[in-house]
Design a protein around this nucleic acid. Sequence first.
DNA 1: CTCAGTGCAAAGGATTTGCATGCCG
DNA 2: CGGCATGCAAATCCTTTGCACTGAG
Lengths: 145, 145
Amino acid sequence: MTDNEVDDEAAALLRQADQRYTSSRRRLVAALQAGNGPLTITQIVAADDTLPQSTVYRNLSILEEADIVTRIVTSDDFARYELAEHLTEHHHHLICSNCGDVTDFSLDTRTETNLERALQRAASKARFTAESHRLDLLGTCAGCQ
Amino acid sequence: MTDNEVDDEAAALLRQADQRYTSSRRRLVAALQAGNGPLTITQIVAADDTLPQSTVYRNLSILEEADIVTRIVTSDDFARYELAEHLTEHHHHLICSNCGDVTDFSLDTRTETNLERALQRAASKARFTAESHRLDLLGTCAGCQ
DNA sequence: CTCAGTGCAAAGGATTTGCATGCCG
DNA sequence: CGGCATGCAAATCCTTTGCACTGAG
């Protein structure tokens, strides 16, 4: 999905949620598209310091409710946000235990499909209705070696 | 690993970290063994209300540092704690999006091994040193259907 | 004009910490 | 006895909210 398509989709989703696609919200979506992994509020404010923190928090929460962004928590004290999966590609996270930074990666389709199947089996055994899965790799990033 | 073995191992790890295995700490380890998934501070205090919150927080953090317990964050505002992986079995989590509860599950060895390999490939491609992985299934638990 | 969106500053809530007391070694 | 562990209460810090103001339709 190109940047413009994401933009259009975001506009549609917000309209559907009776929300406007304001300048702040556009800039948030743009910031998230620019990052190569989920971003913290601090990182977003640093990248665009015309956005006050409260606006960032408030709008991210609205974008989350409209299913445009997803909120992620890792282990440190900072929530991170990324574009919702249907606006990107299914992917996973490399989480650096040292600096806390998070970047995206993907598995090959074969592995992903097999995993999906195994998870489905495990879920039904526990009478659990699975909606999605989340897979993180913990370790040390290239910069922190 | 039996409960007693866990206890012995915990004692050894604490000694190694120059920490005592006090009564509060024993009770925390016992509480975590009893649960069939990671527990929140609230759940722990509810299960053993002779433990003051501050002691629970403080000791869990010490136990975490001694590599006896692991701290987990899901999406809600409560951290959860479980026994470290080397004191249990490798497992994953079913996270209920409705009630927030977390329970354990495992994958068959075959799937787990293949996954491990695929992750290793992906990690080295990103010059990331992988230490462990974390796999959660999100959805609705049996009780919340 | 109206009303949602904005920005500041103050409030909220999980978690942490200071300090006096108690207890293990 | 000495020092770590404990428990209470106060402090922290990310996050949320109240309120008055601004701007788009």
